[in-house]
Nucleic acid binder design. Structure first.
Lengths: 396, 396
DNA sequence: CTACTTTTTCCACTCACAGGACAAAGACGC
DNA sequence: GCGTCTTTGTCCTGTGAGTGGAAAAAGTAG
């Protein structure tokens, strides 16, 4: 099927498209209330948008005391693809133009198999979503990868955990394969955008989004915009020193945060504890599964296992200390904690909060919420859809 | 004298004023090359600026191969006041509209004497500059204070080292006294703006400006704009934990960077070393002066004193470790080191560089210059002038 | 002095946009 | 059922911003 390739012709149209995306169907009159344009001008722009088929008429709105207004909505056939490539699994979801998830698939996968293998799988998953009747095609896709990205070109640069991806033209290649515009970003930035669009960060201009998964990263949002740094590696906090002369890290240093707390570190510590018979609970799980992961630790902690709780608490303390420093430096209005380990829940959050509130000055922490992300694995894919829609809903 | 209170009427005029400020006198034709406006439109806007007397005609430019163009420059009678209030001294300078310093006074002063006493002194210094014929009046003033500021209102909030200033309406009060528009900001942000305008950071969009004086702070520039955080305390890195269970700090915690390295900490450590007779050089200075300051340590280090060099090196290491974390997080394009301790020079810089290059990932440090500020004490006052001129040279 | 450049001014034309007038469509009171 | 009021949508004209061409003004180069 031929997809709509139209783009807004000017900033007014872009503005209207974003209002419709974020606020859902709207009457022409309601739109007029929000955009500060004359009725004539608004009518012209809406008519032009209708011509491009980016938006469609959608019946009559309820009366507000007089003549009923015609409803306008984004074309219900528009479809965005959100792809969140993690270290050990990949999420693919289809959304409509309002960025509501229509279908979502998660599959385990090893990012180290390289871009070709991974994208084969991603394309298969996208095809599956298409086959289930959720989409006839995609109008754009937003991809998150677990490493730094040269954003304008959509190319990973020197990603530590994904050798073989360095310099691979992700944007270019996927755009070819999918036949639609593609944008690529760090997975943490996508999560931040997701929580900003549909999660806990809806009303905050400056916030941090800490993702604790296989590694640790941090999305930085300044004035509502993701900040990516000079080389695209901003937010790479996994290798900040958390423990002087601490554990050796894959990066060559010692004491990196990621070496002391992350999905991988937690699994390793739990296995160690189980082998040393410090915890019957963990030992049992190790025996029955063969390996331990962060999920097992979460379950053990939920069952009240002291060793598991200690591991989480200590990790939370380390993470909290680092975040305390970032809070002093960045003075955010909100800190969101997300990623695979959110299953660790309240124990983790409490440890982090304690450290941050203790380690930063009152002016920075006084009114600083530190909360778990509320979208879970959907944050990344929604962020992806948001990324590409921001791109498409901007003047050509 | 009646000052010019005119403001640019639109963004084009604002653009032109900033071009003239940053590029000095310019011919109409040269301006046309830079602003992407039609010749007719440009002529209209320039004429209007001439009417407001914000800019004046200034003879003929050199020929570029044909008819000579008329030169345009900012009104040479415009004067900005830059005020940099430090913990122990205050800098006041007059600049012209191109932000060139015409006169600069520094006086010792204790910020803890409170806003009334300090501003009395500042006003006296401004009067002195006026009396010396450098200015007939001021068209605007930019003030830097050593603590967090609620920027829009220009009011210090909960400043640790300046009790008595909390909530004092600095902007309002000084605007009254000086009879001109005033903007107030953290002194570190002013330094960053100064180095950005006329110093080492001229071409960099995202950078950090670490000021090591009585305390330690960090100016954050994102996309060419100073980032101040949610409550105005962004960049307050003096109380990031640098040493676990380290020295007690005035803030109530232990191991804060500021407790281990800053002008105050350095003076204290040097005095200790002198009293313990670890260094003949420092002991001699202590005896002759009665007290020791960072300047003495710098002098001793320059004379090759091992103890002084050790103190500087260790402080540089601590600072470097913290900066390494910030570099990982923020991925700046440049790090500027400035403030009172720049006298410590190369030894300090070398220590910081070592830690940053060792402690951050190559992608972030690969092409990251770490340099001393090149403006010294002028950075703050130029930054102040820049602050107010940015405000005045924006559409009303 | 002539030919060519560059700068400046002048002018006609386009275009975006505002805002008023009016028609269409519904709510509401009687 | 009917007139009045409110809201919405359309049409039309006026205004002001801005563009681009033509020509005059003021140079340079030979």
């Amino acid at each position: 099927m031929r997809r709509m390739t139209a783009r807004p012709a000017n900033s007014h149209q872009a503005r209207l498209l974003r209002l419709l995306r974020d606020g859902g169907p709207n009457s022409r009159a309601q739109l007029g209330d929000q955009v500060d344009l004359s009725r004539s001008k608004l009518a012209v722009e809406v008519d032009r948008l209708l011509e491009t088929e980016l938006v469609v008429a959608d019946g009559l709105a309820a009366s507000r005391g007089g003549r009923r207004s015609h409803n306008i909505r984004l074309n219900p056939h528009l479809r965005f693809l959100g792809v969140d490539i993690g270290a050990t699994s990949v999420d693919v979801a289809v959304t409509n133009a309002e960025l509501e998830i229509l279908g979502h698939i998660n599959q385990p996968m090893d990012v180290r198999e390289g871009p070709v293998a991974v994208f084969e799988q991603v394309l298969a998953m996208a095809a599956k979503l298409k086959a289930s009747g959720l989409a006839e095609g995609f109008d754009g896709a937003g991809i998150g990868v677990p490493g730094p990205v040269r954003f304008p070109e959509g190319i990973p640069v020197a990603p530590p955990i994904m050798p073989g991806w360095d310099g691979f033209p992700v944007r270019e290649a996927l755009s070819q394969d999918l036949g639609c515009p593609v944008m690529v970003d760090n997975d943490v930035n996508l999560m931040a955008m997701g929580e900003q669009h549909a999660g806990v960060a809806r009303t905050v201009a400056d916030f941090l989004c800490v993702k604790i998964g296989t590694g640790i990263g941090c999305g930085i949002v300044v004035g509502g915009e993701v900040y990516r740094g000079t080389t695209g590696s901003a937010g790479d906090i996994g290798h900040i020193q958390a423990v002087p002369d601490g554990r050796p890290c894959a990066c060559g240093n010692r004491g990196c945060l990621e070496a002391h707390f992350s999905g991988a570190a937690l699994a390793r510590d739990a296995t160690e504890a189980a082998q040393q018979r410090l915890s019957a609970e963990l030992a049992g799980r190790l025996e029955s599964n063969g390996t331990l992961s962060a999920v097992d630790v979460a379950a053990a902690a939920a069952a009240g296992d002291a060793t598991a709780l200690d591991l989480i608490r200590e990790g939370g303390n380390r993470t909290g200390q680092v975040i305390a420093g970032l809070v002093s430096f960045f003075n955010p209005g909100l800190v969101v904690i997300g990623g695979g380990v959110t299953g660790l829940g309240h124990t983790l959050l409490a440890a982090i909060r304690t450290q941050v509130y203790r380690g930063s000055l009152p002016l920075a922490t006084g009114n600083l919420p530190i909360v778990l992300g509320e979208l879970g694995p959907a944050a990344g894919v929604i962020g992806g859809a948001r990324l590409i829609s921001d791109h498409l809903f901007s003047p050509a």
